[in-house]
Every structure is written in C-alpha cells, then in structure tokens.
C-alpha cells in the first residue's frame, strides 16, 4: 500500500516536471528554429526567447469568444490539445531516464494519442463558427488521414523486426527500441529500409506539426490562419504552447525509434562518474539530438520550399511516402527472411 502511494506521488511529480520541461524546451526550440530560419534567409531574426514573450503577451490579451461559436467546445479544445500532447511526452524516454509511465503503454498507444491534438484542433475549428476555420478544420482532417498510414507502416516495420529477433520482448515498447537500436540489429537490406523509414518519418513529422510545406490547415495567405482564425488571447496561447510541445514530442519519437544511443553505454566503462551525472549528460545529449532532428524535419524544410496545395499534400503522403514506406517494409521483410 505504501509503495503504491509512493509510486503515485512519483508519477504526479514526474508529470509536473515533464509538463514544465516540455513547455519550456518546446518554446526554446521554437525560438532556435526562428533564429536559424532567419539566418538561413540572411536576416538577424528575433531573439531566442521570442516565443516566451509571445506567449506571455497572448496570455494577457482579451479572450474573444465569437457570438456564433459553440462556447464550451471552443474553450475546451486548446486545453485538450495541450494536455494530450503532454500526455504523449510521458510515454517517451529522455536520454537514459526511463519514461514516467513506463510499462503502461507502447508505440501503438502513442500512435493513437497523436491523433488527439489534431482532433482537438479540428473540434476547435468547427466550434468557432467561421467559414475560414471550417475550411481549415476540414484540411486538418485531410492532413491527419494522409500521414497516418506512412507513420503506422514505419512503426510496424520496426516492431516486426524486433519481434522476430527477440520473441520474448514486448515488441512495440519504447524501452525495447532503446535496448536494441535499429541500426545495430538490421542486415544490409534492413539498413536501406531503415534509412527510407527515417526519411518518411521526418516528412511525417513536418506534417504532424503542420509546418510548411504541409501547413494547409493554417495557411495564413489563403484561409487567414485556418483553424485558429477566431482564436485570440489565452486560447491562442494554449494552442501555441501545444504546438511547441508537439514539436518536442515528434522529435523525441524519432530519437527514441532511430537514435536511442546514450553516451553512458559507450563511455561509462572508461570514464567513471556517478550515475546521476551520467543521467544529466545523457539528457543533454538527448536535447542535442532533438535539436538536430528538429532542424532537419522543420527548419530546413520550412525555409527551403513553399506550401503544397491540398491535393498535392494528399498525393505526397498517400502516393510517394506510402510507397516508400511499403518498399522499406518489403526490404525489412527480406532482411528478416534472409
């Protein structure tokens, strides 16, 4: 009984810490992204703490609820969006620190939870009672349906390989992925497959966090910020935070699936430090990996290309990326058979 209470208290403290980390690091990441994008466009760019100032400002602005909006749904959507993204972060390991809710869920659960923020955005868009928001919400649904299949294929391919190699392990658990990094267990075909899956995953991330070229749902030049058109003040600030945390979540997922390496496993035997110091070093290394993944899945793509049309987005995801993911799946299947 006492153990259960201690465990429970640990989880509550852990949830609080992860939520604070997710928001602060998410906003910092957004700042770094804007700074890097500015430098890539030969500009000076805003200070790195700009997103913190933006959120602080949004939280003290007037919160307008349009007369023809469904008020309760309109106000609840941003909160659901933010809490659901933070909930996903609880299932993802950070460096050598195991996830807070370790053993309660696996990648399949994360796959399902990832749809909730998008659904909250869709609900908020439809609830705001503006034609622009309705169009935006419909586009968000199209986007969601488009990237879901390549994402699922990626995770299933990796899980399949692990389950055939180590039948005793929980195949889709993120701790298993951390224990057997993808690149160590694959044969030559599997390596090619995994590289294709990594590219697919990076492009899915761009869509998942709705950034250019897949930001059809928030296209400010066509449909005036789409789903967010009526949102202002605190509600917009919550969506802004949710977007920041979602970036961290998706990058963490890529890091956990493809780059789960920790410095402590390789250097721990030669350099002797207390385990808490190694945890800290691994955590910083994990943050570095996050930034690199975010640079390639968000900043680099966002600055390089313009926005796709709606039908082009569907074609890219359902056509090219699904095809690439299926080819990778076949390659990994060959790798398992040989």
């Amino acid at each position: 009984m006492a153990d259960e209470i201690i465990h429970f208290v640990e989880i509550i403290i852990g949830v609080f810490l992860v939520a604070v980390f997710g928001m602060i690091f998410g906003l910092l990441t957004k700042g770094i992204d804007r700074k890097l994008a500015a430098h890539m466009q030969w500009r000076v760019g805003p200070p790195v703490i700009q997103p913190f100032l933006d959120v602080k400002k949004l939280f003290c602005k007037e919160n307008v609820v349009p007369r023809n909006a469904v008020a309760w749904l309109y106000n609840v959507a941003p909160i659901v969006c933010l809490t659901s993204v933070i909930a996903i972060l609880l299932y993802i390991p950070m460096g050598s620190i195991p996830p807070i809710l370790k053993g309660y869920g696996d990648v399949i659960l994360i796959l399902y939870l990832l749809t909730i923020p998008s659904l909250a955005m869709v609900a908020g868009g439809f609830a705001s009672g503006s034609p622009f928001a309705t169009v935006g919400a419909q586009r968000e649904m199209v986007l969601m349906m488009s990237y879901e299949f390549p994402l699922a294929t990626t995770i299933i391919a990796l899980g399949w390989k692990i389950s055939t190699l180590y039948p005793g392990e929980a195949a889709f658990s993120l701790t298993t992925f951390t224990k057997y990094p993808v690149w160590n267990i694959m044969g030559p075909f599997g390596i090619i497959g995994a590289i294709i899956l990594l590219v697919v995953m990076i492009l899915v991330t761009t869509g998942e966090i709705t950034k250019v070229p897949f930001d059809i749902a928030e296209a400010e030049t066509e449909i005036a910020e789409g789903v967010f058109v009526e949102y202002s003040g605190r509600n917009l600030g919550l969506f802004y935070l949710a977007d920041a945390v979602k970036t961290v979540v998706m990058a963490s997922l890529i890091v956990a699936l493809f780059f789960p390496y920790n410095l402590s496993t390789y250097l721990g035997s030669s350099i002797h430090l207390p385990s808490i110091a190694w945890n800290a070093i691994d955590f910083l290394f994990y943050l570095l990996k996050l930034e690199i993944v975010i640079f390639f899945s968000m900043t680099f793509i966002r600055v390089s290309v313009a926005r796709f049309k709606v039908d082009q987005v569907v074609k890219v995801y359902w056509g090219y990326l699904t095809l690439a993911a299926l080819i990778a799946l076949v390659l990994i299947a060959l790798d398992i058979l040989l």
Binding site: R43, P46, P47, L53, A224, V229, S232, L236
Partner: peptide, 21 residues
C-alpha cells in the same frame, strides 16, 4: 525583408485580426 527585418524586434505580420495587437 532581410534588409530591414522587423522580425528581430518581434514584429510579425499575422493573417487574422483576432491574433493582432
């Protein structure tokens, strides 16, 4: 544009009057 770059002061052009200051 990059020459004047008002984004360095945090000024951003938004697409909806609801977001504007």
């Amino acid at each position: 544009t990059p020459r004047y770059d008002v984004e360095r002061f945090g000024i951003k052009l938004v697409g909806s009057p609801r977001h504007a200051d």
